[in-house]
Amino acid sequence: MYMTTNMPLGGLIDKSLKGEARTAHKEWLRTYIKRLTKGNKAKLQQALNEVDDAINQWRDNYFISTYEEKLVAARQGKLNMDNRDLEEVYNEEEYLHKEGKIGLVADFLYEAIAKHGFINEYHRDAIESAWLFHDMEFLRMQWEYYALAQIRSLREVICSMLGVVPTTVENEQQTANRPPKRIEDYPEVFGIELCCELTNYAKDTIYKWTRTREIPCHRSGTNGRKLVFKRDEIVKWLTARKQETKDEFIKRMETELAAKSSTLYNNPKKFKKHD
Protein backbone atom coordinates (compact mmCIF):
# COMPACT_ATOMS: atom_id res chain seq x y z
CA MET A 1 0.00 0.00 0.00
CA TYR A 2 1.40 3.41 -0.98
CA MET A 3 1.82 5.73 1.98
CA THR A 4 0.04 9.07 1.94
CA THR A 5 -0.20 11.87 4.49
CA ASN A 6 -3.82 10.85 5.04
CA MET A 7 -2.79 7.48 6.49
CA PRO A 8 -3.88 6.96 10.12
CA LEU A 9 -1.02 7.04 12.61
CA GLY A 10 -1.73 3.44 13.60
CA GLY A 11 -1.22 2.36 9.99
CA LEU A 12 2.13 4.12 9.73
CA ILE A 13 3.27 2.66 13.06
CA ASP A 14 2.33 -0.83 11.90
CA LYS A 15 4.20 -0.44 8.60
CA SER A 16 7.23 0.99 10.41
CA LEU A 17 7.40 -1.95 12.82
CA LYS A 18 7.15 -4.36 9.88
CA GLY A 19 9.96 -2.55 8.03
CA GLU A 20 7.63 -1.50 5.21
CA ALA A 21 7.98 2.28 5.55
CA ARG A 22 11.18 2.59 3.54
CA THR A 23 9.95 5.63 1.60
CA ALA A 24 9.13 7.53 4.79
CA HIS A 25 12.09 9.90 5.00
CA LYS A 26 12.23 12.43 7.81
CA GLU A 27 10.92 15.31 5.70
CA TRP A 28 7.93 13.21 4.66
CA LEU A 29 7.40 12.21 8.28
CA ARG A 30 7.56 15.84 9.39
CA THR A 31 4.94 16.81 6.79
CA TYR A 32 2.81 13.86 7.85
CA ILE A 33 2.94 14.73 11.57
CA LYS A 34 2.22 18.42 10.85
CA ARG A 35 -0.86 17.43 8.88
CA LEU A 36 -1.93 14.96 11.56
CA THR A 37 -1.49 17.22 14.60
CA LYS A 38 -1.45 20.73 13.10
CA GLY A 39 1.37 21.48 15.55
CA ASN A 40 -0.89 21.05 18.58
CA LYS A 41 1.26 20.09 21.58
CA ALA A 42 -1.40 17.88 23.13
CA LYS A 43 -1.88 15.97 19.88
CA LEU A 44 1.89 15.66 19.43
CA GLN A 45 2.21 14.22 22.94
CA GLN A 46 -0.65 11.83 22.20
CA ALA A 47 1.13 10.71 19.02
CA LEU A 48 4.37 10.17 20.97
CA ASN A 49 2.54 8.11 23.59
CA GLU A 50 0.99 5.97 20.83
CA VAL A 51 4.40 5.36 19.27
CA ASP A 52 5.98 4.47 22.64
CA ASP A 53 3.11 2.10 23.48
CA ALA A 54 3.55 0.37 20.12
CA ILE A 55 7.31 -0.03 20.66
CA ASN A 56 6.81 -1.54 24.11
CA GLN A 57 4.11 -3.90 22.82
CA TRP A 58 6.42 -4.98 19.98
CA ARG A 59 9.23 -5.71 22.45
CA ASP A 60 6.82 -7.71 24.59
CA ASN A 61 6.29 -10.09 21.66
CA TYR A 62 9.79 -11.55 22.10
CA PHE A 63 11.62 -13.42 24.83
CA ILE A 64 15.09 -14.92 25.21
CA SER A 65 14.88 -18.69 24.64
CA THR A 66 17.27 -20.72 26.80
CA TYR A 67 15.82 -24.24 26.81
CA GLU A 68 17.88 -25.79 24.01
CA GLU A 69 21.14 -24.39 25.39
CA LYS A 70 20.36 -25.58 28.92
CA LEU A 71 19.36 -29.01 27.64
CA VAL A 72 22.66 -29.47 25.80
CA ALA A 73 24.69 -28.16 28.74
CA ALA A 74 22.86 -30.46 31.18
CA ARG A 75 23.45 -33.51 28.97
CA GLN A 76 27.15 -32.65 28.80
CA GLY A 77 27.32 -32.36 32.58
CA LYS A 78 28.14 -28.64 32.41
CA LEU A 79 24.91 -27.50 34.04
CA ASN A 80 23.42 -28.86 37.25
CA MET A 81 19.78 -29.26 36.17
CA ASP A 82 17.68 -32.41 36.46
CA ASN A 83 14.78 -33.45 34.22
CA ARG A 84 12.25 -31.63 36.38
CA ASP A 85 14.20 -28.37 36.16
CA LEU A 86 14.49 -28.70 32.39
CA GLU A 87 10.81 -29.53 32.10
CA GLU A 88 9.93 -26.33 33.96
CA VAL A 89 12.01 -24.27 31.53
CA TYR A 90 10.41 -26.08 28.59
CA ASN A 91 6.86 -25.59 29.89
CA GLU A 92 7.48 -21.91 30.58
CA GLU A 93 8.70 -21.32 27.04
CA GLU A 94 5.84 -23.39 25.60
CA TYR A 95 3.39 -21.20 27.49
CA LEU A 96 5.00 -18.07 26.01
CA HIS A 97 4.83 -19.61 22.53
CA LYS A 98 1.12 -20.35 22.98
CA GLU A 99 0.62 -16.69 23.89
CA GLY A 100 2.05 -15.84 20.50
CA LYS A 101 5.46 -14.71 21.71
CA ILE A 102 8.61 -15.49 19.74
CA GLY A 103 11.69 -17.02 21.34
CA LEU A 104 14.97 -15.39 20.37
CA VAL A 105 18.15 -17.44 20.02
CA ALA A 106 21.70 -16.31 19.33
CA ASP A 107 21.86 -17.65 15.76
CA PHE A 108 18.67 -15.84 14.74
CA LEU A 109 19.84 -12.53 16.19
CA TYR A 110 23.30 -12.80 14.66
CA GLU A 111 21.93 -13.61 11.20
CA ALA A 112 19.36 -10.80 11.40
CA ILE A 113 22.06 -8.27 12.30
CA ALA A 114 24.41 -9.57 9.61
CA LYS A 115 21.62 -9.25 7.04
CA HIS A 116 21.36 -5.52 7.78
CA GLY A 117 25.14 -5.19 7.71
CA PHE A 118 27.78 -4.15 10.21
CA ILE A 119 28.67 -0.54 10.90
CA ASN A 120 32.43 -1.15 10.72
CA GLU A 121 35.02 -3.79 11.53
CA TYR A 122 34.77 -3.04 15.26
CA HIS A 123 31.02 -3.51 15.20
CA ARG A 124 31.43 -6.80 13.34
CA ASP A 125 33.97 -7.99 15.93
CA ALA A 126 31.59 -7.04 18.73
CA ILE A 127 28.66 -8.89 17.19
CA GLU A 128 30.73 -11.99 16.46
CA SER A 129 32.13 -11.97 19.99
CA ALA A 130 28.66 -11.53 21.48
CA TRP A 131 27.45 -14.48 19.40
CA LEU A 132 30.45 -16.58 20.44
CA PHE A 133 30.05 -15.73 24.14
CA HIS A 134 26.25 -15.96 23.93
CA ASP A 135 25.66 -12.40 25.13
CA MET A 136 21.93 -12.38 24.36
CA GLU A 137 21.31 -8.97 25.93
CA PHE A 138 23.83 -7.26 23.65
CA LEU A 139 22.67 -9.18 20.56
CA ARG A 140 19.05 -8.31 21.23
CA MET A 141 19.85 -4.62 21.71
CA GLN A 142 21.78 -4.52 18.45
CA TRP A 143 18.99 -6.34 16.62
CA GLU A 144 16.37 -3.99 18.04
CA TYR A 145 18.42 -1.03 16.82
CA TYR A 146 17.86 -2.19 13.24
CA ALA A 147 14.35 -3.57 13.70
CA LEU A 148 13.11 -0.31 15.24
CA ALA A 149 15.04 2.02 12.93
CA GLN A 150 12.00 3.22 10.97
CA ILE A 151 9.70 3.84 13.90
CA ARG A 152 12.60 5.48 15.75
CA SER A 153 12.80 8.05 12.92
CA LEU A 154 9.10 8.74 13.37
CA ARG A 155 9.62 9.13 17.10
CA GLU A 156 12.55 11.51 16.63
CA VAL A 157 10.45 13.74 14.35
CA ILE A 158 7.64 13.93 16.92
CA CYS A 159 10.12 14.68 19.70
CA SER A 160 11.77 17.45 17.67
CA MET A 161 8.37 19.05 17.03
CA LEU A 162 7.63 18.84 20.75
CA GLY A 163 11.00 20.41 21.49
CA VAL A 164 12.23 17.52 23.62
CA VAL A 165 15.32 15.32 23.37
CA PRO A 166 14.38 11.96 21.77
CA THR A 167 15.53 9.62 24.53
CA THR A 168 15.14 5.88 24.05
CA VAL A 169 12.17 3.96 25.40
CA GLU A 170 13.54 2.10 28.41
CA ASN A 171 11.98 -0.09 31.05
CA GLU A 172 15.10 -0.17 33.18
CA GLN A 173 15.21 1.26 36.69
CA GLN A 174 16.54 4.75 37.05
CA THR A 175 20.15 4.90 38.20
CA ALA A 176 20.24 8.56 39.21
CA ASN A 177 20.02 7.87 42.93
CA ARG A 178 22.62 5.13 43.04
CA PRO A 179 25.62 6.01 45.23
CA PRO A 180 28.93 6.47 43.41
CA LYS A 181 31.26 3.48 43.36
CA ARG A 182 34.81 3.30 44.56
CA ILE A 183 37.35 0.89 43.10
CA GLU A 184 37.07 -1.41 46.10
CA ASP A 185 33.27 -1.47 45.72
CA TYR A 186 33.65 -3.60 42.59
CA PRO A 187 33.71 -7.38 43.14
CA GLU A 188 36.99 -9.19 42.68
CA VAL A 189 35.57 -10.97 39.61
CA PHE A 190 32.87 -9.50 37.36
CA GLY A 191 31.32 -9.66 33.90
CA ILE A 192 31.52 -7.42 30.86
CA GLU A 193 28.87 -4.95 32.06
CA LEU A 194 30.90 -3.97 35.12
CA CYS A 195 34.07 -4.02 33.04
CA CYS A 196 32.51 -1.39 30.76
CA GLU A 197 31.45 0.63 33.79
CA LEU A 198 34.85 0.50 35.47
CA THR A 199 36.93 1.19 32.35
CA ASN A 200 34.42 3.59 30.71
CA TYR A 201 34.86 1.76 27.39
CA ALA A 202 31.94 0.59 25.27
CA LYS A 203 31.07 -3.09 25.09
CA ASP A 204 32.07 -3.40 21.43
CA THR A 205 35.51 -2.05 22.32
CA ILE A 206 35.93 -4.51 25.20
CA TYR A 207 34.86 -7.36 22.93
CA LYS A 208 37.39 -6.29 20.31
CA TRP A 209 40.17 -6.28 22.87
CA THR A 210 39.21 -9.70 24.23
CA ARG A 211 39.49 -11.11 20.72
CA THR A 212 42.91 -9.54 20.20
CA ARG A 213 43.97 -10.30 23.80
CA GLU A 214 44.66 -6.65 24.49
CA ILE A 215 42.76 -6.77 27.78
CA PRO A 216 43.13 -9.43 30.52
CA CYS A 217 40.06 -11.68 30.62
CA HIS A 218 38.98 -15.22 31.43
CA ARG A 219 36.24 -17.53 30.20
CA SER A 220 33.83 -19.52 32.31
CA GLY A 221 30.31 -20.92 32.19
CA THR A 222 28.80 -23.19 29.56
CA ASN A 223 31.42 -24.07 26.93
CA GLY A 224 33.62 -21.26 28.26
CA ARG A 225 31.30 -18.70 26.68
CA LYS A 226 31.03 -16.30 29.59
CA LEU A 227 33.63 -13.55 29.79
CA VAL A 228 34.85 -12.64 33.26
CA PHE A 229 37.40 -10.10 34.42
CA LYS A 230 39.46 -9.79 37.58
CA ARG A 231 39.34 -6.38 39.24
CA ASP A 232 43.05 -6.25 40.14
CA GLU A 233 44.07 -7.25 36.60
CA ILE A 234 41.83 -4.59 35.05
CA VAL A 235 43.11 -1.91 37.43
CA LYS A 236 46.70 -2.89 36.62
CA TRP A 237 45.92 -2.93 32.87
CA LEU A 238 44.27 0.50 33.02
CA THR A 239 47.09 1.89 35.12
CA ALA A 240 49.64 0.81 32.52
CA ARG A 241 47.43 2.04 29.67
CA LYS A 242 46.98 5.46 31.23
CA GLN A 243 50.65 5.60 32.21
CA GLU A 244 49.70 6.57 35.75
CA THR A 245 50.71 5.26 39.11
CA LYS A 246 48.15 3.06 40.81
CA ASP A 247 47.35 5.76 43.37
CA GLU A 248 46.90 8.37 40.62
CA PHE A 249 44.65 6.03 38.67
CA ILE A 250 42.48 5.18 41.69
CA LYS A 251 42.13 8.83 42.65
CA ARG A 252 41.17 9.85 39.11
CA MET A 253 38.73 6.95 38.66
CA GLU A 254 37.01 7.63 41.97
CA THR A 255 36.59 11.27 40.98
CA GLU A 256 35.09 10.28 37.62
CA LEU A 257 32.82 7.63 39.12
CA ALA A 258 31.55 10.05 41.74
CA ALA A 259 30.62 12.55 39.01
CA LYS A 260 28.56 9.99 37.09
CA SER A 261 25.06 9.32 38.27
CA SER A 262 22.41 8.59 35.65
CA THR A 263 24.76 8.45 32.64
CA LEU A 264 24.85 5.03 30.96
CA TYR A 265 28.42 3.89 30.41
CA ASN A 266 27.58 1.70 27.43
CA ASN A 267 25.00 2.92 24.92
CA PRO A 268 24.51 0.08 22.42
CA LYS A 269 22.60 2.34 20.08
CA LYS A 270 25.59 4.52 19.33
CA PHE A 271 28.22 2.78 17.26
CA LYS A 272 31.35 4.82 17.83
CA LYS A 273 34.92 3.94 17.07
CA HIS A 274 36.96 4.11 20.26
CA ASP A 275 40.69 4.38 20.53
Rank of each mutant, 00 (worst) to 15 (best):
N120C: 08
E121D: 15
E121H: 06
Y122L: 13
A126L: 00
A126S: 04
I127D: 01
S129G: 02
W131H: 03
L132T: 02
F133Y: 14
F133L: 05
D135A: 06
D135Q: 07
D135I: 00
E137M: 10
E137P: 00
L139Y: 07
L139T: 07
L139P: 00
R140K: 13
R140I: 05
R140E: 13
M141I: 03
M141Q: 09
W143R: 03
E144Y: 11
Y145L: 13
Y145T: 10
Y145D: 12
Y146G: 03
Y146P: 00
A147W: 01
A147G: 03
L148F: 06
Q150G: 07
Q150H: 13
R152S: 13
E156R: 07
C159W: 05
M161V: 10
V164W: 09
T167L: 13
T167I: 14
E170K: 15
T175V: 09
N177M: 10
N177T: 11
R178Q: 15
P180V: 08
K181E: 13
K181P: 01
R182K: 15
I183M: 15
I183Y: 10
E184C: 09
E184S: 14
E188V: 06
V189K: 15
V189A: 15
G191C: 11
I192A: 04
E193T: 02
L194Q: 08
C195D: 07
C196W: 05
E197F: 08
E197H: 10
L198G: 05
T199I: 02
T199V: 04
N200T: 06
Y201G: 03
Y201T: 04
K203Y: 04
K203A: 11
T205L: 10
I206M: 08
I206W: 01
I206K: 01
I206Q: 02
Y207P: 02
K208V: 03
W209D: 01
W209N: 01
W209E: 05
W209T: 00
T212V: 11
E214C: 04
E214P: 00
E214N: 13
E214A: 07
I215H: 00
P216A: 12
P216I: 04
P216F: 06
